[in-house]
Design a protein around this nucleic acid. Structure first.
Length: 684
DNA sequence: AGCACGCCGACT
DNA sequence: GTCGGCGTGCTC
């Protein structure tokens, strides 16, 4: 068969890596020796030189072909090329943009260090110090700090030194402790279901915090490796889930490649290569790890599947959970969460792990009506904090206060680029926009009326930090903090402390001695104008309860002015089933996912580029879509006017295709020059 | 998206 | 004359 194929397929079809939406590949080139689907090349493209990925092989072409300029050393696995083509379509993007997410990390070649090997055998009675004899006995190894001494021995022919590649191994630091466990009955049953799943089966592991899901993942991964296949484990964010990484590394050592944002370019490159070469067969990482260059995947785990970080915010706006489904193929896919999304519960068979491995009960949740008090902290909450040893306090707003107003003329300080109020950051002496980063000094007088009475409204994490410091030592964790890992370690080691922060404090880390969890303003997530507001609030309270549940008298306080909201009431009862049942009924009634698919198109245009250009473009798109709502103007962001159209699609495939062609047609219209388009399939 | 070509108005 | 504004067209 070989000789028939050989010499025939002399043409490669290639996607040049450009961000241009209008540029539609593939483009044909001549096929160099050894080049196939997934090969990465430099190609001449017009008058420029571009990187390109081979997506197909052909026998002939109607074009006049050029030769590629260079073939890169590393290539993509072919299944990732197919995945990119699918993603481009599914998320109304381009193959080029999707492929760019999967390329081998570059900019660095292998690191070479000097490797010392024994040279000639030393003669009887040859003069050697004790240190030199020990050095010789330690070979072969990398020279390291002993280079000087080794050089001397090299001069005598006793040692030979040569550069040798050594991978840049990332360091893993842990918070808390890891322990070996024997599986309980729930875990045994869950593991059994995972390892006996049919090829391609997808499962939801619905286990409360502390029910031992990680141990099930570890055992399932063990069996997958034993069967000669590889494993991908997705986690929301490595810095916030160090225990997961730690346990995989402890169990599997160098078989694990950990991919995260803190890796240097060199480490990233080396970890990618280890996966590509099959030296590492488990990839652990955030959403981008779904593109790990592994072959023959037998298991994909998506831990904390409800977490919004699985959605990519750039183009293509992919959802790693859906991409994982697609990539899994005949591999088993396991979604795990204590607070799974209603759509996952609706769509997948569920494995329940309802109790904690330590046997502890879920902590009582107390709802405190905020409308009864004037401040942002109820006396009941202060009391609980005062008698707590270690508390986690959640406040979904950074800074000191939400907004400033002039006491006499009611002026509100707003961002010049965005339609939002500026937030006071007292420690920086600045008011800042949380969307575009605009900052200005804290005003002393009102520029409109010269009044010096400027009022501060609302409380953020910075102010709560100061107020709580009266009660106990405080650690703050929010998006402004440089090293979240360090804060979490300090909190873990502290005897008595309060950890105050935004949503991140409720995520994956596990501290044994937290006896109180507080949600200062549950309304802030509940009021969010979004069909997922209830679901997020439920998840937040439940996750926090999980954090506070391991201590003896652990309990949770939720401050709200809407105590009867289903999300809060059900979370207080630890009634996940009831909440999800109600939420799915509501979604069915309103035709929200999973009973439809949402597609959101946002048009934006520079403010100085004529009024309502973005809105006009959105209206034009709407005209081309059935089942669409809008156009609705959005608040101005980074100096751009915005408007959106939302599709509630009953036929997902049809609506995606229709949206793609509508956006392409409108984007090509010169009347809307300068307008940017962003398509978000399954927006969060 | 780049990049070059080409057509036009403004300035040495 | 010629510099440079940006509209248009093309990339295997």
């Amino acid at each position: 068969v070989g000789h028939i194929l050989e010499g025939v397929s002399r043409v490669i079809q290639v996607e040049p890596l450009t961000t241009a939406r209008s540029l539609r590949g593939p483009f044909d080139y001549t096929r160099p020796e050894g080049v196939g689907v997934g090969s990465v090349l430099d190609v001449p493209f017009g008058r420029q030189k571009l990187e390109a990925v081979v997506t197909a092989i052909a026998d002939s072409s109607e074009h006049k072909l050029s030769d590629p300029l260079r073939v890169h050393a590393e290539s993509l696995p072919t299944d990732l090329v197919d995945l990119a083509v699918w993603m481009a379509h599914e998320y109304c993007s381009t193959p080029s943009r999707a492929l760019s997410l999967m390329l081998p990390p570059k900019g660095t070649t292998e690191r070479k260090l000097l490797w010392a090997e024994p040279g000639r055998v030393s003669q009887e009675g040859e003069r050697l110090t004790q240190g030199q004899r020990e050095l010789l006995a330690s070979l072969p190894r990398f020279a390291g700090d002993d280079l000087q001494s080794l050089r001397r021995l090299e001069g005598r022919g006793l040692v030979s030194l040569a550069p040798k590649a050594r991978r840049r191994a990332p360091q893993h630091t842990s918070v808390g402790q890891t322990k070996t466990v024997t599986l309980n009955a729930d875990q045994v049953a869950a593991l059994e279901k995972v390892v006996t799943a049919r090829p391609g089966e997808q499962l939801l592991l619905a286990g409360v915090t502390g029910s031992g899901k990680t141990e099930v993942y570890l055992r399932a991964a063990e069996q997958t490796l034993a069967a000669g296949r590889s494993v991908i484990v997705l986690v929301p964010e490595i810095a916030l889930t160090p225990q997961m990484v730690e346990r995989f590394v402890a169990r599997f050592g160098d078989t694990v490649a950990v991919l995260h944002s803190k890796l240097s370019d060199g480490e990233r490159h080396d970890e990618w290569l280890r996966l590509r070469r099959g030296e590492a067969r488990i990839a652990v990482g955030p959403r981008s790890a779904v593109f790990a260059p592994l072959s023959d995947i037998g298991l994909i785990v998506v831990d904390e599947e409800h977490d919004s970080s699985y959605k990519h915010e750039g183009d293509p706006r992919y959802d790693a959970r859906l991409v994982a489904q697609r990539r899994a193929g005949d591999a088993v896919l396991v979604y795990g969460s204590a607070t799974p999304r209603p759509e996952t519960v609706h769509l997948l068979p569920r494995i329940e792990m309802p109790s904690r491995v330590d046997g502890a009960a879920m902590p009582p949740v107390e709802i405190v009506d905020l409308s009864e008090c004037s401040g942002y902290m109820h006396p009941r909450t202060q009391e609980a904090l005062a008698s707590s040893k270690k508390a986690i306090v959640l406040l979904n707003r950074r800074g000191w206060s939400n907004y400033l107003t002039c006491g006499s003329c009611q002026r509100v300080w707003e961002c010049p680029n965005c339609d939002v109020a500026l937030v006071l950051h007292r420690s920086d002496g600045a008011i800042a926009c949380h969307h575009c980063g605009h900052r200005e000094p804290v005003p002393r007088v009102c520029p409109d009326c010269d009044s010096v009475s400027i009022a501060r409204h609302g409380a953020g994490t910075e102010r709560a930090e100061r107020d709580l410091a009266q009660i106990a030592p405080v650690l703050r964790l929010d998006a402004g903090v440089a090293d979240p890992g360090a804060i979490l370690r300090q909190f873990n080691e502290a005897d008595r402390a309060i950890l105050i922060g935004t949503q991140v404090v409720a995520k994956g880390h596990d501290f044994p001695d937290v006896d109180l969890g507080v949600v200062l303003d549950a309304d802030s997530t509940l009021r969010f104008p979004d069909f997922r507001a209830e679901e997020r609030t439920f998840a937040l309270v439940t996750q926090l309860a999980g954090r506070a549940g391991r201590a003896r008298h652990g309990h949770v306080i939720v401050q709200t002015s809407a105590p009867d909201a289903p999300s809060i009431a059900h979370a207080a009862q630890h009634d996940s089933e009831g909440f999800i049942t109600g939420e799915l009924e509501r979604r069915r009634a309103l035709n929200y996912p999973p009973f439809s698919s949402l597609i959101r198109v946002v048009c934006s245009g520079a403010v100085n580029d004529g009024p309502d250009k973005a809105l006009a473009a959105a209206a034009d798109i709407k005209r081309r879509l059935d089942q669409s709502m809008g156009p609705a103007p959005l608040f101005r962001l980074r100096g751009r006017d915005r408007a959106q159209v939302v599709v509630k699609a009953s036929d997902r495939e049809h609506s995606i295709a229709q949206t793609d062609s509508a956006v392409r047609a409108v984007a090509a219209d010169s009347a809307y020059k300068g307008v940017a388009f962003s398509v978000d399939v399954d927006p969060q």
